[in-house]
């Protein structure tokens, strides 16, 4: 699908792997920011196309790759990947 090919996610490197954020899917509910046990994420100051503040990684060193952001996200907009292993959840 062409739309899928054009879609670009943001990627952050964290000690054990990667965090992906697909900003167009985000509806700014703030669940990932609030319920991250290590407070790795914060709401960005910029807006996405829909006018919501997507999450961004502010403390990559603290991430233990528990994947709870991926679980709690209602919009399939954030996910984690373990280094060399693919999806962990």
């Amino acid at each position: 699908m062409s739309e899928l090919q054009e879609r670009a996610a943001k990627l952050w490197k964290v000690p054990k792997g990667y965090i992906y954020v697909l900003e167009e899917f985000c509806k700014g509910c703030g669940f990932c920011v609030e319920f991250c046990p290590k407070k790795v994420l914060a709401q960005a100051s910029h807006f996405n196309d829909k006018g919501y503040h997507p999450p961004e990684v502010v403390d990559p060193e603290a991430c233990v790759l528990c994947g709870f952001c991926e679980r709690i996200c209602p919009d399939f907009a954030i996910w984690v990947e373990e280094e060399g292993k693919g999806d962990v959840s």
Partner: peptide
């Protein structure tokens, strides 16, 4: 409102999929 600002700059990766997209 954001309290902290991102220290690490993200990379843009096209064509990636959420693990549940299948």
């Amino acid at each position: 409102m954001p309290v902290k600002v991102a220290r690490a700059e993200p990379e843009f990766v096209p064509g990636v999929r959420h693990p549940l997209e299948r």
